[in-house]
Each structure stands twice: as C-alpha cells, then as structure tokens.
Amino acid sequence: MKFGVVVFPGSNCDRDMFDSLQQDLGKEVIMLWHKDEDLSMFTTDDCIVLPGGFSYGDYLRCGAIARFSPMMKSVIEFANKGGKVLGVCNGFQILCESGLLPGALLLNESRQFICKNVYLKNETSDALKIPIAHGEGRYFADDALLDELEANKQILFRYCNEEGELGGEGNPNGAVRNIAGIRNKAGNVFGMMPHPERATNKLLGNIDGITVFNILGLN
C-alpha cells in the first residue's frame, strides 16, 4: 500500500505526515503538488492523504479554495473509483468542502484555536491520546444526517476522557455528538480533526497514533 501526500500552498503538516508514514510506519510515500493532476501511479488499494495546515491561507473558509485545485479534481475522481483518501485537520475540512464527506467544521465553541492532547476512541478501542490543533474543528451536521451516520457506522472516532467515557469534559471544541472523525458511506474516505501523525514517534513519548492508522486500515 502506497501513500500520496498532497501539498497545497499553506499545508504545514505535509512533512510530518511524510515522516510519520515513511519513518514510523515504514510506508512508501510520494509527495504530490496541488497544481499537478496525475495520480496514475496509484491504485485504489493506495491512499491519498490531505494533510493539515492552512491551505490557500484558509481565506474565505477553511478548505473552501483547496477543493478547486487541479489535484483535488483528481483526488475526487480517485475517491469515486474507490481509492482510499484520508484528510486530517485542514484535510478533513477540505473533504467536507469538496463533498467527499458530509457535514461541516465550524469555529470551536471557545472561539479560540486549541492545541493540546485529547482522547478519542472508536467503538472497540480504549481511549487514545492524540493531539489536536485547530480553530475550526467543531463537527456539525443536522440530526437526520447524524442519525444516518450512526446507523451506517460512519462515525470513526469520538472525543472522550482519559478513561474512555464520552461526555462534556473530553470534547475540546463542542463537536456535535463528540464527533472527532468520520468516514463516507462506502468506507474509503476518512476525515478526522486530531493529528495521528503527531503521535507515531517513540521519541515524542506517545505512539497512540499508530493505533489510529491501524483502526483506519492504513497500516
């Protein structure tokens, strides 16, 4: 399984993602430039990653400009063919803006940028310690859509406390139903606000991010 990491102007977690995938997870990784369109070196078994950062300065609205880049046209085609796509932080925002994932990411409830370790879990895992760093990461969708996401098991991760309990204190940004990450209905497009790539290197004292990649089926 090969990875491609898209570099937009203003991406700033692209190198971190590259290092994490290549050095910590031992994957083959190719950097992709936003002005290019060619994804012919990837098959649908491979994964394209949209990294964190402030693509195009996040002017207008986070991720709103990136969706129109030449590379994103190819990524959308790739996803529609069944290729795997992961968006982290700004990448998640771009996926929502481009319609590959449902819902939207709003300004944090505190109206401040927040960077810290938080805990998240999927239905079977223990609480995983993963960093967040965003100003607009409050996942939002209407109740009908949320019910549908739950029915289809599209909610990948929810914020929780250190003990793995869902609820208020573990939710850093006010995300509806504690949602930290989701997937599309087909199960090949994943988006999450927390940064697993910041938690895969033993020297940093936290490798819970490896479990996140495992849960996503990307490791």
């Binding site: 190198r15 994490s20 401040q112 960077c115 760093a133 940064h195 910041r198 940093l204």
Partner: peptide
C-alpha cells in the same frame, strides 16, 4: 493552548 506547539512533530 492557543499556540500550535506540536506542528513539526518534533516537540
């Protein structure tokens, strides 16, 4: 906590 202290994955 208002500063990104972890970008770069080197802290």
């Amino acid at each position: 906590t208002q500063y990104d202290s972890m970008v770069g994955a080197a802290n």
